[in-house]
Deep mutational scan, measured.
Amino acid sequence: AVSDRLIGRKSVVMEAISPQNSGLVKVDGETWRATSGTVLDVGEEVSVKAIEGVKLVVEKLE
């Protein structure tokens, strides 16, 4: 599936994300709604860990 190619990809937070609120990330020039178990600020680099419905699950790059 097209979405499977996103797992493991680097992306950049475009709208802040917290455990309570989804935000936005940009992956390969496309904007996606995303969630995370931690707070992520605009501009942080993250990695796509999973896809749940139409949202990406991301975490901060170490």
Rank of each mutant, 00 (worst) to 15 (best):
L40V: 07
K10G: 06
V46F: 03
A1R: 11
V42W: 04
I17V: 07
I17M: 04
A34Y: 04
G29T: 06
K10A: 07
G43H: 04
G53W: 04
L56N: 00
T38Q: 15
V39K: 11
D4K: 14
A16I: 09
M14L: 14
K26T: 10
L61E: 08
V2R: 11
G29P: 02
V27D: 01
W32V: 00
Q20A: 10
L6P: 00
V39F: 15
W32F: 14
G37V: 11
G43R: 03
V27A: 04
I51C: 05
V25K: 01
K49M: 13
G43S: 03
V42K: 07
I51T: 05
K60E: 03
A1T: 12
V54Q: 14
V12H: 05
I7T: 05
V42Y: 04
V46N: 00
V46E: 01
V39M: 10
V12C: 11
E52C: 14
N21C: 15
E15M: 12
T38P: 00
S47T: 15
G53K: 03
K10W: 10
I51V: 12
S11N: 03
G43E: 04
V13L: 02
V25E: 01
E30C: 13
S3R: 12
V27W: 03
L61D: 08
G37K: 13
W32D: 00
A16W: 11
L56D: 02
T38K: 07
L6M: 08
L6R: 04
G53Q: 04
N21S: 13
A34K: 02
A1F: 13
E45Q: 10
E45Y: 13
K60Y: 05
S3C: 12
G23H: 01
L24I: 10
P19M: 05
R33F: 11
G53P: 03
V58S: 01
K10S: 08
R33A: 14
G23Q: 01
T38Y: 11
V54A: 14
G43Q: 03
I17F: 03
T35P: 02
V39Y: 15
D28F: 07
K49D: 02
K26I: 14
G29M: 06
I7V: 09
R9W: 07
S3K: 10
A34H: 01
V54T: 14
A34E: 01
K60Q: 06
T31Y: 14
A34P: 01
G37Q: 13
V2A: 13
K55R: 13
E30S: 07
D28M: 09
D41N: 13
K60T: 05
V27P: 02
I7S: 03
A34M: 00
V48F: 03
R5F: 09
V46C: 15
S22C: 15
T38A: 11
E52P: 02
I17K: 02
V48S: 01
V57Q: 05
A50E: 06
E59R: 05
D4Y: 09
K49L: 13
W32Y: 15
G53V: 04
L40P: 00
G23V: 03
G29R: 04
G43F: 04
D4Q: 14
D41M: 13
V2W: 14
V48Q: 01
I51M: 07
Q20S: 12
P19D: 04
A1E: 11
V27H: 02
S3E: 09
S3W: 12
V12Y: 10
V12D: 02
V46R: 03
V25H: 01
S18T: 12
I7H: 04
T35D: 08
G53F: 04
V39S: 12
V27F: 06
W32T: 00
L40N: 01
V48P: 01
V58T: 01
S22Y: 10
A50D: 06
L61H: 08
R9P: 03
V48T: 02
L56T: 01
S11G: 15
S36H: 00
E59T: 08
K60L: 07
V13H: 01
T35Q: 06
E30T: 08
K55N: 14
V12W: 08
V57L: 08
A34S: 04
V25M: 03
K26P: 01
A1P: 11
T35I: 14
K60V: 06
M14T: 10
V2K: 11
E62W: 12
L61R: 07
K55P: 00
P19Q: 05
G37Y: 14
E15F: 07
R33Q: 14
E44Y: 05
I7P: 02
T31H: 08
E15P: 00
V48G: 00
D28A: 08
D28Y: 05
S3L: 14
K10C: 14
R33G: 10
S22R: 04
R9F: 08
E30H: 09
N21T: 12
V13R: 00
L56K: 00
K55F: 15
V48K: 00
S47H: 12
V57R: 09
S18K: 06
A1N: 12
E45I: 15
I51Y: 07
Q20N: 12
E62T: 12
G37L: 13
D28I: 05
V48C: 03
R9M: 14
I51R: 07
K49T: 13
K60P: 11
L24P: 00
V12R: 07
R5Q: 08
A34V: 03
G29N: 09
V42G: 03
G37R: 12
E59Y: 07
V2I: 13
S36Y: 03
V39T: 12
